[in-house]
């Protein structure tokens, strides 16, 4: 067995910096995906068909094609078509945010549909306007039910984020690869990066459980 973790010691700061890079674009992507996904979910349940069709087509496209292809198209095709030299960071946020929105919208739509119809009726009967009803009555109940599914989506996004290494964004994965190339040893830096991903996902999971417990207050 040829293992020597001491060789990566000089590269540890370099690799660790990737955590920040990864977290930065993952959190922006999650936020963007979540907001856009909520809006798309509301489009899907409105009675106004053009919005519904738009949201359905959107979802179908982003779920029906590989994420890496979407990333490449944004990173490579945008400069070719518009002349705008898009940064790796912006490409990554766009691709992951837009992609995640498609999945999140489906989760939220299902969550909204699962809220008892009686809640809508009670709110309507009180004269509550649609917006307030959604924000104060329906969405809080929907989110509580779908929190595990949402957490799952965020975890998937965190792990899939390693795809951005393919467009040269200096995330955790890319830095591990660079370190590996420098010292002619791939296993150690990749293993090290793997541990860091695992820790990040575990923290996310625990945070999710905590929020879930807090929300259970009323049960």
């Amino acid at each position: 067995m040829n293992l020597d973790f001491s060789q990566i010691v000089p590269y540890i700061p370099f690799i660790l910096e990737g955590i920040g890079a990864t977290l930065k674009f993952v959190s922006v992507s999650i936020l963007a995906g979540f907001i856009l996904g909520t809006i798309l979910a509301i489009f899907k349940i409105t009675g106004f068909w053009p919005l519904k069709v738009f949201a359905d087509v959107y979802t179908s496209i982003f779920r029906g094609t590989p994420l890496i292809l979407q990333l490449m198209i944004i990173y490579l095709a945008v400069p070719q078509l518009t002349g705008y030299d898009i940064s790796a960071f912006l490409s990554a946020v766009l691709a992951f945010g837009l992609n995640s929105a498609a999945y999140v919208s489906e989760i939220i739509r299902a969550g909204i549909m699962a809220v008892d119809k009686g809640q809508t009726e009670a709110a309507k009967a009180l004269g509550v306007p649609y917006r307030a009803m959604m924000l104060n009555i329906i969405l809080p109940q929907a989110f509580k039910n779908i929190l595990p599914a949402l957490m799952n989506e965020f975890i998937t996004l965190t792990k899939e984020s390693a795809l951005v290494s393919t467009i040269g964004y200096l995330d955790l994965m890319r830095r591990a690869q660079i370190a590996g190339a420098d010292i002619y040893r791939n296993f150690e830096p990749l293993f090290f990066a793997g541990v860091i991903y695992w820790v990040m996902v575990t923290i996310l999971t625990l945070a999710g459980r905590y929020v879930e417990r807090r929300m259970r207050q009323s049960d």
Partner: peptide
Amino acid sequence: MVFQHFHLFPH
């Protein structure tokens, strides 16, 4: 309006 199944806001 008062409903058969109350429909209180559970949260």
